[in-house]
Design a protein around this nucleic acid. Structure first.
Length: 286
DNA sequence: CATTCGTGGTA
DNA sequence: TTACCAAGAAT
């Protein structure tokens, strides 16, 4: 696995030797549920503009949301801003290397905490994302897909196969993820190119089809997520606050639901209503 | 444990 | 064209 990784690994900017823990953290947050190709240009802009956590913390939430653009799940941007504030004020502007400390930061969960510890600081920690879950399901358990996620079980699975030495474990974690991303892919795995072909339980079992529960396909068109996205799109595109009618036009067919979406954006802190009644991205018009 | 939360590319 | 997919976290 580690030899294969040395040959096949992608040369991503957050994997460069000179990339800081902050750079790794920003990449991990951006990469949550988001393809590498879409993250890369935004990540570069962010690291140029905000090379350290305190720099991001000094910007308003609105500026941060604009720079996030259409990466998706904008609450991630707000949480990253909040995490940067904590890191700047309580951790000397240095991203923590300890998993338990990372877990206390907003927006950092079981995966991201271990990914930062492993990839930024070469710590020995099981890093379990959707790629790793799929590789383990196939190579270890002989099944085509991973079942429903269970953090405790998933972490234990990977912990059991992690090399003892710290630096080696970190490389192995990166290799496992990269294997799932490049070879052991969801729809058309390239088994002929797989470095663990001979040891793969799924291969040996004759690559049986998945029999477990089918997860409901997640729709987007016509959902609250789409409406919220349309509302935010208006505010990202205007430097000045807008009156409500400018927001109403994005979803005239169901005013009740649209207003509920606006309300949820206000609750989430993604939108703010200023004293004169207009709406704006948060933190820019005090 | 199940839902919710954006967005765009691709088979 | 639809359905699936992409380095999850919070509730």
């Amino acid at each position: 696995m580690i030899d294969w990784f040395g040959r096949a690994r992608r040369d991503l900017p957050w994997r460069r030797a000179d990339c800081t823990g902050w750079g790794v953290l920003v990449s991990e947050i951006m990469l949550q549920q988001t393809p590498v190709a879409r993250v890369e240009p935004i990540w570069r802009e962010w690291l140029d503009r905000w090379p350290v956590p305190s720099a991001l913390a000094a910007s308003s939430q609105g500026e941060v949301l604009r720079a996030w653009g259409k990466l998706g799940y904008p609450r991630r941007a707000l949480r990253l801003h909040a995490a940067a504030t904590v890191i700047a004020t309580e951790h000397g502007d240095v991203v923590p290397a300890d998993v338990d400390t990372l877990l206390t930061l907003p927006g950092i969960g079981a995966y991201t905490a271990r990914a930062v510890a492993a990839f930024a600081y070469a710590k020995r920690a099981p890093v379990v994302d959707t790629n790793v879950r799929r590789v383990v399901a196939r190579a270890v358990h002989g099944e085509a897909e991973a079942g429903p996620p269970s953090t405790t079980r998933d972490l234990a699975d990977v912990e059991a196969m992690l090399p003892a030495a710290e630096a080696e474990a970190a490389r192995f974690s990166a290799a496992l993820m990269e294997l799932g991303a490049l070879v052991c892919t969801a729809r058309a795995p390239r088994c002929a190119d797989c470095p663990v072909y001979d040891g793969c339980a799924w291969q040996r079992a004759g690559r049986p089809a998945y029999t477990g529960p089918v997860k409901a396909t997640q729709r987007y068109a016509g959902t609250d997520r789409q409406i919220r996205g349309l509302l935010l799109d208006v505010l990202r595109d205007t430097p000045e606050p807008v009156w409500k009618d400018s927001l109403d036009v994005v979803w005239p067919e169901d005013p009740g639901r649209r207003d509920r979406c606006l309300g949820s954006l206000l609750e989430d802190g993604l939108v703010e209503q200023i004293p004169d009644g207009r709406f704006a991205l948060p933190g820019e018009h005090r």
